[in-house]
């Protein structure tokens, strides 16, 4: 099928450490379709971040196969097929917000006009219009993280990999950013893989929730969300939402029972 963006088959990754091998991922099978919003949730050590890093060619699997856009993760990375948002905003203090967003564009060799146009566009997209000339320290943590999302969007990759991007932010800011992220996803039609350890966040955002469990890191459950694409914040009080959250919690608990 051509609308499969990521396809993992029997994927495994074992780290060799001084205390013996650590199975970060074992027998992971998953297909991510075009336009999906997939959340990976699980306790620490379940391999959710490792899985994301394998997709991004930041880690090499030791077993099984994985394709991104039908190619190897390395080819996908070289083709700049994805934008990656880290847990910390990681903006350069010596560059303005605009300068930070231009950074990947400069690296990828876009013309100056194109850089300016795209920077203005993505700043508008994350509602940071007018902040282009500000420095990172002049922005709040939430705004910095939005700027880092804008930076990942600037070169218009169809795939967005996000590793607990809102993990360090407070509840209210996080709600607001979740809402914005959903709108952005709806408007751009991108495929998003999103790592989180928050159940409400996973359920609110995702079309599919991948529940993972640790030692060895593996997929415990994959939940297709029946929630509509249009999701106001108060959908979190609906019966369906609470049912899915229950199922996620059960999946997490089952995974924990193993150790």
């Amino acid at each position: 099928m051509s609308d499969i963006v990521i396809s993992a088959k029997d994927l495994g990754l074992t780290f060799q450490t001084g205390d013996g091998p650590i199975h970060a991922l074992k027998d992971v099978n998953l297909d991510v379709r075009q336009g999906d919003f997939v959340s990976f949730i699980g306790p620490s050590g379940c391999g959710k971040t490792t899985f994301l890093r394998v997709m991004a060619d930041l880690e090499q699997p030791t077993a099984g196969t994985i394709t991104v856009n039908g190619t190897s993760p390395e080819e996908a990375r070289r083709a700049r097929a994805y934008g990656y948002v880290f847990q910390a905003a990681g903006l350069y203090p010596w560059r303005t917000i605009g300068g930070n967003i231009r950074l990947p564009l400069e690296i990828m060799g876009y013309s100056r006009d194109e850089q300016a146009r795209r920077t203005a566009d993505v700043l508008e997209l994350v509602e940071l219009g007018g902040f282009e000339k500000k420095y990172p320290w002049q922005l709040s943590g939430g705004m910095q993280q939005r700027a880092s999302i804008a930076r990942a969007l600037a070169f218009d990759a169809d795939l967005l990999l996000m590793d607990e991007p809102f993990g360090a932010l407070d509840e209210i800011v996080r709600d607001h950013l979740n809402e914005q992220l959903l709108k952005l996803w709806d408007r751009t039609g991108k495929t998003i893989c999103f790592v989180t350890h928050s159940i409400p966040e996973a359920v609110y955002l995702s079309t599919r929730i991948v529940v993972m469990s640790p030692r060895p890191g593996r997929i415990a459950d994959v939940i297709e969300s029946p929630l509509p694409r249009e999701r106001p914040l108060d959908i979190r009080d609906s019966r369906e939402f609470i049912e899915i959250a229950h199922r996620v919690r059960d999946g997490l608990r089952a995974g924990h029972g193993d150790d």
């Binding site: 930041l58 990375r77 994805y82 880290f86 990681g90 350069y92 010596w94 690296i107 990828m108």
Partner: peptide, 24 residues
Amino acid sequence: AMQLDQMRTWNASAAQTFWRLRLP
């Protein structure tokens, strides 16, 4: 490590990583 990974996700060359990240 995160900043270096970030450069890697953009497929930045060694020279680009040097001038834009390491030197500053």
